[in-house]
Design a protein around this nucleic acid. Structure first.
Length: 347
DNA sequence: GATTCGTGGGG
DNA sequence: TCCCCAAGAAT
């Protein structure tokens, strides 16, 4: 099948099945670059369902890129808490300030977008196509999967990326590039799914090599990922006489960078004994262990936590005390909220 | 090219 | 329970 007709076929399918998403312009409407950018950053490695409420609250609180640029970084981190990949929040803020500094308009081409913080190859193409209707080949996980099946690409990811990208580019039409970009991603999200693809409903079924071979689910091929190390640590639940709890801000870079934390000792492969954990506590206190173990799985770390509780009279240097009913006002990532929950429950 | 970066849902 | 993975970027 000629590639032009494949794009036409997909666009016809899209016109019939176009999904309503909070950041998506309705048919015939012009997309708002700010909304497109904000949603694309949030959607990096994150599901539509998870993004929904965050997108709504960000948009309500910061209706424009200028408003977001003017916000304190800590407010952005707090609003982002729970969504993960916190470098995105720091880059979001940095990017907003860069755009505000150039008058509030986003660059309208891929090259210009690519220079902005937090915008890589995929996001630059997505914004160029969706917000500015420029011809740009978007390559995300959906497109990788669709194209790998369509051509039954034998090489494995991530090495196959350049090959898949060239194929994706050759399929991208000059007409309606913004709709095409959303269409091919929607196809991957709703029809050409990782498992149990709904090939019977696919507009590209006739052209699909993997469908013909009956092994769509075997693509894209992937090289196995390294296994996740198990690390152990102790969280120190330090309470003040008024019932507030001691928090600390993490360093700006690295894991959970810039976010708040319940202080822990070093994350290490060997489990900590009670005495060892008491010996390296942030401050001297009558530490007692709290019941319940916490497990939190990051992309590359399987973290196991135990809890020690201590009563303090004064807040340690470099830390702060927060009342339990105000913890929502702090930039606490999910793993730290798990600790809070376990500590409150365990007394 | 390989690593580092979160979290929650689905099968 | 476990594994996969999601509109990837930065280093």
């Amino acid at each position: 099948m000629p590639k032009e007709s494949m794009a036409e076929q997909l666009l016809a399918w899209y016109d019939r099945h176009r999904r309503v998403l909070p950041w998506r312009a309705k048919a015939g409407e012009t997309a708002d670059p700010y909304r497109v950018w904000l949603s694309e950053i949030m959607l990096q490695q994150t599901t539509v369902a998870a993004v929904g409420p965050y997108f709504a609250s960000f948009l309500a609180r910061w209706p424009s890129v200028e408003a977001l640029a003017a916000a304190p970084l800590d407010d952005v981190l707090t609003a982002w808490a729970g969504l993960g990949y916190y470098a995105r929040a720091r880059n979001l803020h940095k990017c907003a300030q860069a755009v505000a500094a150039r008058g509030g308009d986003f660059p309208s081409d891929e090259a210009g977008l690519l220079e902005l913080p937090g915008i890589g190859a995929y996001t630059a193409a997505a914004i160029a196509a969706i917000a500015f209707d420029q011809r740009a080949a978007v390559m995300d996980g959906n497109v990788e999967r669709v194209v790998a099946r369509l051509y039954r690409v034998q090489s494995a990811l991530p090495a196959a990326k350049p090959e898949l990208r060239a194929l994706a580019d050759s399929l991208t039409p000059d007409q309606r590039p913004g709709d095409y970009a959303q269409a091919v991603m929607d196809l991957g999200a709703t029809i050409c799914t990782p498992r149990k693809p709904r090939c019977a409903l696919c507009p590209w079924r006739e052209a699909c090599a993997a469908f013909k071979a009956g092994d769509a689910e075997d693509y894209p091929r992937k090289t196995p990922k390294p296994e996740r190390p198990i690390l152990h640590a102790t969280a120190y639940w330090m309470t003040m006489p008024d019932g507030s709890v001691v928090l600390r801000r993490r360093k700006e870079e690295g894991l959970l960078g810039g976010m708040m934390e319940i202080p822990t000792n070093t994350w290490r492969a060997t489990p900590w004994t009670l005495d060892e954990a008491r010996g390296v506590a942030p401050v001297a206190a009558a530490w007692r262990d709290l019941p319940g173990n916490i497990r939190h799985v990051f992309t590359h770390i399987d973290l196991r936590l135990t809890l020690l509780s201590g009563s303090l009279r004064k807040v340690p240097d470099g830390m702060l005390a927060a009342s339990l009913d105000k913890l929502g006002d702090y930039a606490l990532p999910s793993v730290m909220r798990k600790i809070v929950s376990a500590a409150v429950k365990g007394g």
